[in-house]
């Protein structure tokens, strides 16, 4: 099976999982206590208005009918209509998703750029002081709540030192007219980066730590391989041994961890967006739950699940691409 066919096959395999996510979110959100109609119309609505609203959102139909029409809608790209914001759910998601993507991708960028060198050095200098330090950093990193790191960063860099703004995040290509105090696009880019730094570090620390751990153990294994010994025996210098021979085969477990970490990071974004008051997907989901806006709860949960699946598929494909032994799912 070729790489393209493998890709298509993996995408098809994701469909039942997507339907499963929709099913779980549908039945969970329809079990939410409280009535969205009463939230919209206040405590004493007229019976006529209640009927009108229920008909509008299809709440007068039986549960299974609503479920199948929801599935049919999603298949056609319609995630429903937000009760609270009175716009299509998809519109709201498209508005909020880019900031979350910006935050999550930057967090992974930060994590990879720090974790890979740290893990490799740690493996190379095993049981030396630098290895102990990096292992302690990684241990603390996987054990610290990300939102607490966020709070500490705000206390130090915003409140004590006054260096970075504590809240809000926008994209570097935002319109300067919408950004206070920005005259040119360059100002927007700088301001956007300043606002990105703290949430990026807070969200990326856990990923950094878990990638460092796996990079280290994978490199330790890799450096014990026969072909590495052979390369050394042939007089390849240490730098060449590490980067040319040992590094690449050691990256497969790292890729797996990055793929799995995407799920943690998307969940972590809920916390980090709350701490830094960032209007992304994570905050949207909390707001949707607090407003009992269940079409929006379903839509955002589904979207986060779908994003994770895309990440997993990319992971699998890059795995197949890097490791020629992966037989593209053939048994």
């Amino acid at each position: 099976m070729g790489l393209l066919r493998y890709t298509v096959w993996r995408c098809l395999q994701a469909i039942p999982v997507l339907v499963g996510i929709l099913t779980i979110t549908f039945f969970l959100t329809n079990a939410i206590p409280g009535d969205p109609v009463s939230i919209m119309l206040g405590p004493t609505p007229s019976a006529e208005m209640v009927e009108q609203i229920q008909a509008r959102y299809g709440l007068d139909r039986p549960l299974h009918e609503r479920y199948f029409s929801y599935l049919a809608g999603v298949a056609q790209g319609d995630l429903g209509h937000s009760i609270y914001y009175d716009v299509p759910v998809l519109t709201k998601i498209i508005e909020r998703l880019p900031v979350t993507a910006y935050l999550v991708f930057s967090a992974f960028g930060f994590a990879l750029l720090t974790a890979i060198p740290l893990g490799v050095i740690s493996a190379k200098r095993r049981n030396e002081p630098v290895d102990h330090v990096s292992r302690i950093v990684a241990l603390i990193g996987v054990s610290t709540p990300s939102f607490w790191i966020g709070l500490l960063l705000i206390i130090v860099f915003s409140f004590q030192l006054g260096l970075l703004p504590a809240t809000g995040l926008f994209l570097p290509w935002a319109d300067p007219a919408n950004v206070r105090g920005a005259a040119t696009q360059f100002d927007v880019v700088v301001e956007s980066f300043k606002r990105l730094l703290m949430p990026m570090v807070a969200l990326g620390t856990l990923q950094m730590a878990s990638i460092t751990r796996i990079e280290r153990s994978s490199m330790v294994d890799s450096l014990q391989n026969e072909y590495v010994k052979l390369a050394r025996a042939y007089g390849v210098d240490e730098r060449g041994v590490i980067w040319k021979h040992a590094f690449k085969p050691a990256q497969l477990p790292v890729i797996t961890i990055v793929g799995l970490g995407l799920s943690t990071a998307l969940g972590g974004a809920v916390l980090i967006e709350t701490v830094f008051e960032i209007n992304g997907m994570g905050r949207l989901i909390i707001q949707a739950i607090n407003n009992q806006d269940y079409p929006l709860v379903m839509g955002t949960t589904f979207m986060l699940g779908a994003l994770y699946l895309v990440g997993v598929i990319i992971t699998d494909i890059s795995y197949a691409y890097i490791d020629p032994r992966v037989s593209y799912g053939e048994k």
Binding site: V17, G20, I21, T23, I24, T25, S263, T264, L266, G267, G268, V270, L271, I285, T301, L304, G305, Y308, L309, V312
Partner: peptide
């Protein structure tokens, strides 16, 4: 399916 939805969410 359970695994695909972010834990916290």
């Amino acid at each position: 399916t359970i695994y695909a939805i972010p834990f916290l969410v």
